[in-house]
Simulated scan of single mutants.
Amino acid sequence: MAQQERAVRTRQAILEAAGAVFAERGYGSARISDVYKRAGMTKGAFYFHFTSKEQLAQEVLDGQVSQQTTYLPLYPREVKLQELVDSALLVAHRLTFDSLLQGSIRLSVDQGSVLDRRRPYRSWIDFQVAVLTEAQERGELLPGVDIEVTAEVLVGAFSGVQLLAEVMTGRTNVEERIADLYRVMMASLAVPEVFARLDISPDLGKRLMAEGLA
C-alpha cells in the first residue's frame, strides 16, 4: 500500500510540474526533460508513469474535466445563476496558483498541439447548459435566451478574458476581469430582481475556498 501511495504521489508531482512547464512554454516548446527536472525526478522515473509528451499533455489537459467533477457544480444556491458565477470565480481564483489548471488552460488554447482539445470545452459547455436550463425553468432568465448559444458564449468569453489577463498582467487581475465579464453577461441574461441578488465580487472564489465550499 505504501508503494502504491508513493506511486500516486509521484505521478501527481509529475503532472503538477508538467502543468507549470506547459503553462510557461506551451506544448511545442516544452520538453520532457523540463518536466522531470522540475519535478526533481530521473528520466526513468518519468517514463515509468508516462510514455510520451503527448500522453502527458493530454492528461494535463483532461485534468480540467476531473477538476470540474471535484469542485463543480458547487453546493446548490437559492438563485441558480449564482452557481454559474461561483464556478467562474472559483476557476479564476484557482488560476492564480494552481499550476495544473494553468497548464491545462494553456493547452486548451494552444493551436500548435496535436491534442484533443474538445473534451474540456464540451464538459464546460454541458455544465453551463445544465445550470442555465434550470435557471430558465425557475424564471431567472430574460425571455428569448438561447441556452446553447449562451453556454458557448460564456465558455468562449471566459477563455478569451483569462487569456487577455495572462498576456496583459500575468493573470494578476484575472479575478477582477472575470468578475467584470460576468457582471456584463448576467445583466444581459437575468431578470432584474435576480441580477440584483447575485454576488459577482472578484474575491468570491477565494471566499468559497476559505469557507470550505469548494
Rank of each mutant, 00 (worst) to 15 (best):
R118H: 07
E176M: 06
S87L: 08
P73M: 05
I32W: 08
I105R: 14
A210F: 00
R25V: 01
P202R: 02
V155P: 02
F127Y: 14
L101Q: 13
E193R: 08
L181F: 02
A135G: 06
L107M: 04
E78F: 09
G103M: 06
V21N: 08
I147V: 15
S29V: 06
Q102G: 03
E134P: 04
S29C: 08
L142S: 03
T96C: 01
E152D: 13
L90V: 15
A20W: 03
V155L: 04
R197H: 01
A57Y: 01
V79I: 15
E16P: 07
Q55N: 09
E5R: 14
L74N: 13
S29E: 14
M185E: 13
N173P: 01
S108Q: 13
F97T: 10
M209R: 14
P192L: 01
A23K: 01
R171S: 05
V21Y: 07
M41P: 08
R207L: 01
R77M: 06
E78T: 12
K53C: 06
V8C: 11
K43W: 06
I178S: 02
A57D: 03
K53W: 07
E78Q: 13
Q12L: 15
E175I: 01
F46K: 05
R106N: 04
F50G: 03
S108R: 12
I125N: 09
T69M: 12
Q64G: 10
V174F: 01
I32N: 09
L100C: 10
D116K: 06
I125L: 07
E211H: 04
S99Q: 15
L84H: 02
L100M: 14
P73E: 03
E5Y: 07
V149P: 00
L15T: 04
Q67I: 12
Q64C: 09
G212C: 05
E140T: 01
L142V: 04
S87F: 11
G44H: 13
A17W: 01
D98C: 05
I32F: 07
L141N: 02
T51F: 10
A130Q: 12
D62Y: 13
D98V: 02
A88Y: 02
A92L: 03
V109N: 11
Q68P: 04
E175G: 00
A20F: 02
L101F: 08
N173E: 14
L81N: 00
Y71N: 11
E5A: 15
A20H: 06
A39W: 05
F48V: 15
Y75T: 10
S66C: 06
L100P: 12
L198S: 05
G205R: 04
D110Y: 13
I32D: 09
S33H: 07
V191R: 09
